[in-house]
Nucleic acid binder design. Structure first.
Lengths: 205, 205, 205, 205
DNA sequence: TATGAATGAGCCTTCATTCAT
DNA sequence: AATGAATGAAGGCTCATTCAT
């Protein structure tokens, strides 16, 4: 992003131009995919000119990169909120798992983009996003490992595999979830958390 | 696809032109995505001309559609093989779950395409693929419901939700799996099947 | 250039598409410069579409490169014709010098392009053109050195400096020559050759 | 140029903004050509903003025009210094010829620009520059004609042709000269002056 | 069955310039 | 004297597809 992009712009308008562009791009990328969305469509929907867009963003790619940045920032913040409490590890994991589902549904556009547009980023940016994502996963994994150490969770499942397993399910939400389905976001979150917990419960024996 | 496409062509060459095109397209679509792969690249890699491709396929879109068709056919066949045995439902589910993981890894290109290219199909074909996919999921779901009826699996998790949960994890394999990882495809399959079973195990009580 | 470009195309039309493009581009590049000439203008003047141009040439740059190739080929051929006769070196040099002036005037567009568009070529192609040009200069320089060895020309002027001196004057023709001037191309050629000879004549002594 | 541009500005800084812009533009135009240099690059390299540039100069074109003005002013001054002495015409011509070479090399960026960017000026300004250049050439030609009148130089070569011949070589310096070559600027200047004189020496007879 | 020239619409990006402040 | 957001036109290039052969 260009340096100018971040600061507040001409107070008085509730939405700055770069912010509006980001919002519009998020929606369009989710709807029809990055490659199928033209810069022309983005600026038209945002009500600005192409020149304005390129004043704030280096490229279409950069726009996507900023979206990834926002998503990762938001998700990391939320996870931290649930993972860092004083509650028992079991409860913290359930809360975090349920919340990531709820927020993935609340921001379904983000969820769809995350899954589908990684390959459209240029290699450098892709690496950066993957690295940040890895840190997020590691934070989540730490919760599982903590439970494994305390004996609450079974230890014959590699924690990182469980993380990939669970987040596969989460990312996939954008594929099938519809707001008019039988279950609310909250209910789905609780079910998913429960499925995760079930997988981690030590065998009966 | 044009009518001529399916039959055997000019015996003597082990790979017919349409078959080669499909194979090459599968690889390229997985590597760089549908939109980033040009028809020119496909035909060049397959060693034929554009005219030849358009002789066998109606469009680039059609090429992708045929790939989806093949993937679904293969997956359905495999599922049927494991779901229709005489074994106890628990064992049948484990076998099917493990196998879909192993074969998803064995055909990682297919897995990547499935996840990422659905949106690139035109609406009609997309509907057709989704319908076929639904049938596949339903077959899988039937296994779970069978276990729920027999009391082997807990009933407080909607079977269709569990299916979406599990296949999210499966589709996501293409995102993180690398052949040089610590676990073999078989091991991952067993772990995944085990995680699924764990989720379905009735609560301690 | 793409491979297809060179061969004869659909006999019957006297000018093939790539040939027409090259001719038109030569004129336009000379008139307004490479950077000021758009691909759109070139194809419009040639009566073809952009797609057709990109079917035969890799880029606008490639078009320029092919023009350089043609110019160098033609100039080298002509030089060889005059430099390789049995005549005394003095006469051969005069003939070659006079001819390069006459042909530079006859193809004034080429002359203008040569001087002005080298920097527009991408580095690799620029190197290739410079190398070819160097070979041409060396052939010319060999004539001067031959005369210096026989004692006909003065030896206190480095032959390569004389070559650069003379060709500076030749390249500059495109800058000031107009067909309605007082002197014919032939006369200018003779004058230039005479000036060159004068410079090489041993001092009075 | 806007009226404000010329006077001294905010003493204390050794280089005024317009002066810095001109210097930077000269370097960049020489390096990559006028059309390939963006206003953005110029102002960035000069450490000012676009607004500042447009405060001092009417356009990018105007920047180039001012550079041409400076070059012509400097060259004319130098020529006058050598042409107006009391020395014999032969010596004055040698001194002027040698000096123009030395100063063309000392200001190689100017030399490159002069040759290559004339076409980028708008027609009016181009005419003005050409007219000024013509006056310069005429001053130089007058020296030759003076020598022809006195019988020191041969008269069968039109003086204006000789001028174009010689300045072709001079302008071409930017094309091949490198500071690490075998000859110093001074040596090249002497050789060029000598070649010019040789061309003008009356035939042996 | 296959060629490959040609199309035409669309894509991302650049850029000189303006103008309110 | 200077800023920097915004414009709008143009630029080079790509690409799926068609069609005469």
């Amino acid at each position: 992003m260009n340096e100018q992009g971040s600061g507040p712009v001409s107070a008085g308008q509730e939405e700055t131009v770069p912010r509006r562009l980001l919002a519009v791009a998020t929606r369009l990328f989710a709807e029809r995919g990055f490659d199928r969305t033209s810069v022309q469509e983005i600026v038209a929907a945002a009500g600005v000119t192409k020149g304005a867009m390129y004043h704030y963003f280096d490229s279409k790619d950069d726009l996507l990169y900023e979206i990834y940045g926002r998503i990762l920032r938001e998700q990391t913040e939320r996870l931290e909120k649930f993972a860092a409490t004083e509650a028992p590890v079991r409860e913290r994991l359930v809360a975090a798992a349920s919340d990531v589902v709820v927020s993935s549904i609340a921001n379904l556009d983000d969820t769809k983009i995350f899954l589908q547009s990684m390959h459209q980023l240029n290699p450098d940016k892709q690496r950066a996003v993957r690295a940040e994502r890895r840190r997020y996963h590691e934070r989540f994994r730490a919760l599982i490992e903590e439970g494994q150490r305390t004996g609450e969770f079974r230890t014959d499942q590699p924690a990182d595999l469980v993380v990939d397993y669970f987040f596969g399910a989460v990312h996939h939400l954008g594929f099938w979830y519809h707001s008019d389905g039988a279950l609310s976001a909250r209910q789905i979150g609780d079910h998913f958390a429960d499925l995760l917990l079930g997988s981690l419960r030590p065998s009966a024996a």
